[in-house]
Design a protein around this nucleic acid. Structure first.
Lengths: 204, 204
DNA sequence: ATTTGGTTAAACTATTTGGTTAAAATGAAA
DNA sequence: TTTCATTTTAACCAAATAGTTTAACCAAAT
């Protein structure tokens, strides 16, 4: 009467689903392809996750949980804005280089399916900007930073760090880079982007 | 023996296909849905465009042609880098506000289908960065700009202008904005982003 | 009026695909 | 060894979907 619950199978499915969904999206992915990748009978996908939507949600939630908490912790530590920016830029680029499909996957599916961003907001570790915003305002008041709206600054930081992964194909043709050159380019952004931002906002 | 060729039908199809493909992507779009939207028999889609792939390509090519040539002309006019940045930021944001699905559509499908970016490069009006790059290098040498790699600057400009549209759902929850607030936020970026960039790169 | 090339609609086809089912295998506990 | 819940497999199924075919339609040319 004891459950055996081969945790391994469930993980194999999730791992395979992650690959397929991230590469092809919800609509482009095929349940059979996921099953094949996991070396498992297709019925198992339904046994463990009921249907495609729920399997997808599980994958998405896991992907989002990789991104959000670290962002949250950087945003809320006790360092200065300048340190936060340098820290974030370096860490996130390093992380994204290891998970290049992630940004596109999340942005894409969020644009496609608006309602399920609401569910995410409840999740623990969902980024909270309050501290960051008051800190920016304070440093502006103290004269450490030039006047800037904290939301604008936040979006600028994210944009400069995330876009290069979203727009990889565009960047490669526009700037005539092969894969190696692109990788070097990204690598150097770990510090270049931080400098670019600090240059712009730091008081002289 | 004369052809009647109701040009209108073809345009209706393209218009409907544009809407559906941009909202749902290649995989999520349904030929029947496109036909319904165009108020036309599904067989017409195949009569005019042969198959789904070719219809999609036509839509994509048209979308890309909306984006690329204006970028090219701004990049290659005779104004200074600072003017180019202000000009581009304002014009592109205005344009994107009228076509909010466009950036996501292009980025998405380019990431999905790597090979057809090659075809685009042949198209006339494909952006050429040479003049922009030499101009940046020159202004750096003249001391007008602080030292910066022209590719990095280019990507930063694009990132700051395009990301806010790609990441609309993310921005809305992270910064707690409803649709109106988001729109105001974007509107103010028409000048804020240019200031942000100029602040960073202009020599003091 | 008839022919003719191009256009449109309706019905149809073949295949793919998400999901189901029923039976077989597995393995821990009694 | 028997029992019995849990896990796995193979065969199915119904709906959806891209694409095809065939015949009707229409406007202009003869």
């Amino acid at each position: 009467m004891k459950k055996k619950r081969d945790k391994n199978t469930e993980e194999q499915i999730l791992e395979a689903a992650k690959h397929i969904f991230q590469a092809k999206g919800m609509d482009g992915a095929r349940m059979q392809e996921i099953a094949d990748k996991a070396n498992i009978n297709k019925a198992m996908l339904h046994y463990y996750f009921r249907n495609k939507k729920m399997l997808f949600d599980a994958v998405f939630k896991q992907a989002f949980s990789l991104i959000a908490p670290p962002l949250n912790s950087i945003l809320n530590d006790d360092s200065s804005i300048e340190e936060k920016i340098r820290n974030f830029t370096s860490n996130y680029t390093t992380f994204m280089m290891k998970h290049p499909y992630l940004p596109n996957f999340i942005v894409q599916e969020l644009n496609r399916n608006g309602d399920f961003i609401q569910k995410l907001k409840q999740a623990t570790g969902f980024p909270n900007l309050d501290k960051f915003k008051t800190q920016v305002d304070k440093e502006v008041l103290l004269g450490k930073l030039k006047p800037i709206d904290s939301d604008q600054l936040f979006v600028n930081i994210i944009a400069l760090n995330v876009f290069p992964f979203l727009g990889k194909p565009l960047i490669k043709i526009f700037t005539n880079k092969d894969d190696k050159a692109y990788e070097d380019f990204i690598e150097s952004r770990k510090i270049e982007v931080a400098n670019f931002i600090i240059n712009s906002i730091k008081s002289v």
